[in-house]
Every structure is written in structure tokens, then in C-alpha cells.
Amino acid sequence: MNDRAVVVEDLSRHFGRFRAVDGISLTVDRGEIFGFLGANGAGKTTTIRMLCGLLAPTAGKGSVAGFDIYRQAESIKKSIGYMSQKFSLYPDLTGRENLNFYGAAYGLDRKQIRVRTQQLTERLNLQDFVDRLSSSLPVGWRQRLALGVSLLHEPKILFLDEPTSGVDPVFRRKFWQLLYELAEEGVTIFVTTHYMDEAEYCGRISIMHQGKIVELGRPFELVERYRAANLEDLFVDLIRNRDNVNAPA
């Protein structure tokens, strides 16, 4: 249990009669990069929100960093960093002001904030952008800044919900280099993406469809098993087959 960063068993979340997440199970090891894939509306964001303590599950079990998602949400919050699918910085504050604010929210003291801000601006190459209003930053830089915010308190697990959507390929490549470095330092990364080239960088992936996980494994093994040309074809085939099965005949 303790070397597992994330353990989920039969987790569900219903909105009224609609089952946004419908009994999913998975585990993520420490230091792993786990790709959480799925079509639009599959339930990825809903799952992440439950794991981060933002949303109460309807049923099932789950633990993050060894803490129970029902009873120990506060401890979980201290061990995780989160980058939401939406742009989640204050547009009317500069990068530095955002970092200062979130640093305080994560309970860092003044000195820690200064040191961490310094480290992160260097590491993320934000020197020229950190003093600009975050609303004025190009998307790629914004996303880096958001990553910086989620790393302020040196979390052991990172939940990244489509961190690279709308970002150009060069930026995406650099972003993933950073993720690799972090993983090597022992940070667990739980990431969603719609880019299949990114999915190939992941240690393992799961593919979600209509609230259920339909496949889970190493990217190359899955491609081989289904005799698909590549991950993208596999993804499209899996989802399309499911849709056909579910469609009224």
C-alpha cells in the first residue's frame, strides 16, 4: 500500500442518474508517469477532482499518498499538486504575485516562498515572464507558470489535467522533459492528455470511456496486443467499437 501513490477501487461518481465515473479501479506506483486517457466527457476530470478532495465520490474506495480520500482529504492536499484543466491563475496578478499567493495558501513562509520562487523561475525558465500580468502571457508560458504554482510546496504527487492543451509542439516537448525530470526525482505524475505522442511518453496508460476504464497497460504492449499501427489508431478503434456496441442497433 505504501509504495502506491494512488489506489482506486470501484470508484464512482454519479450526477443524478448520470454516471460520470462508473466503478473504476487502478493503481499508480511512486515515481510513475501515469497517462489517464479518454474521450471528451469520459470522466477524467471528475476522477481527478475526487482524488484531489474537490468532489465527494458516490461509491468506492480510494487513497492518495496513503491517505483515504474520504477521511483524510486535508493530508492529501498537503502531498499533492494540482493543475486544473482550466487556466487557474489570477489573470489580474503577475506571475510572481500568483506564486506568492499560492505559496501562502500552501502554508509556506515568506523565506520558503522566496527560495522556491527563485528555484522554479530558473528551472522553468520564467525569468522574463514572472513579472508580467499572467493574463498577458502566451499560453505556453502560462501553463509553465501554472506548473510552477502546483510545484511550490514540493508535492509528492502531481495531478495534471490536460496541462498542454493549446500549447505548441516545442513547448509540449519541453514540458514533458520537465515531467521526466520530476519523475526521476521521485514525483508521481498522474496526467491526462488528448495528444497520443504524449501518451507514448507515459509509463502506463489507461483509456477511459463513458465512466469506465476500458484498457490499462504499457503503451507499447497495448499497441502490440491489439495489433494496431500506433496508439492513436488503438485509441480511436477502442472508442469507436464501444460506441457501436452502445449505439441502438
Binding site: 474537490l54 492536499k77 486544473s84 487557474s88 491563475l89 495558501a105
Partner: peptide, 13 residues
């Protein structure tokens, strides 16, 4: 609307 409330609520506040 900006999503900052959600971000804030993942912090231990």
C-alpha cells in the same frame, strides 16, 4: 469562473 477557487481548494486551506 476563472477556476482559481478550484485551485485554491486543492491547497490545504
Amino acid at each position: 469562473e476563472t477556476g482559481t477557487l478550484e485551485q485554491l481548494r486543492t491547497a490545504p486551506v
